[in-house]
């Protein structure tokens, strides 16, 4: 352990015990048959690695460049991604970033970053069990978001590559515009069922496909 002052802990089992994403139960409760010509498509990208980085931007930028080969987003409310699009870093606050990586990579990432950062005053927190990522796509996705978040989701105000933390109905969401056709919503585990039900309800008039 390079940084004895903080405790690392790999929460992912070595074996294969049963694992359930935050939306597992909601899917079972509220199945929607893939509706034909659905205006909205909703998917969960379950069990990804979610890590919160806190610290100074310069030192942190250097570390993620070394470890992940990508830089911190330079501007507030923006997201950087690697070429595959599978790894992303989002600006949350001047000293906070959300990193999302393929599931299982989070502990290695934490360890490598701690080694690289040495004694720098930072905080690295694994929150993979506490949130999940949803994608929202389709012709009416933006309208569904307009019913849901007060933040301006017009392409002029919310271009591809932007990401914000904002209010989702009566819960909260980390909202990112991943591409011209796809939005990403990071929701907290305990609110996931509420958010899922809300999206089903708000999408009903357009038809929704949750697979």
């Amino acid at each position: 352990m390079s940084n004895v002052s903080a405790k690392e802990f790999n929460t992912v089992p070595a074996g294969n015990p049963a694992v359930e994403s935050p939306l597992h139960w909601s899917y079972q409760q509220q199945k929607t048959a893939g509706s034909v010509n659905a205006g909205v498509t909703l998917r969960e990208k379950p069990l990804l690695g979610h890590v919160v980085l806190r610290g100074g931007a310069i030192v942190m930028d250097e570390a993620v460049r070394q470890v992940m080969g990508m830089s911190l987003p330079a501007k507030p409310n923006s997201v950087t991604r690697d070429e595959t699009g599978e790894r992303s870093i989002q600006w949350i606050s001047p000293d906070e970033w959300l990193v999302i990586v393929p599931g299982g990579e989070e502990f290695g990432l934490e360890r490598s970053l701690r080694q690289t950062l040495g004694d720098a005053h930072v905080s690295i927190v694994n929150v993979s069990g506490g949130q999940t990522l949803l994608t929202l796509a389709g012709e009416n996705a933006r309208e569904v978001l307009m019913k849901t978040v007060s933040f301006d989701v017009h392409p002029l105000a919310f271009p591809v590559g932007k990401g914000v933390t904002t209010v989702f109905a009566k819960a909260t969401v980390v909202l990112r515009c991943a591409s011209e056709t796809e939005w990403e919503l990071v929701v907290r585990r305990s609110f996931a069922d509420y958010c899922y039900r809300w999206l089903l309800d708000a999408s009903k008039e357009y038809g929704i496909d949750t697979q």
């Binding site: 507030p76 409310n77 606050s93 001047p94 007060s150 933040f151 914000v164 904002t166 209010v167």
Partner: peptide, 11 residues
Amino acid sequence: PYCQEHREEEE
């Protein structure tokens, strides 16, 4: 002043 943009009061 940190996010450098306007946000709704509910935030």
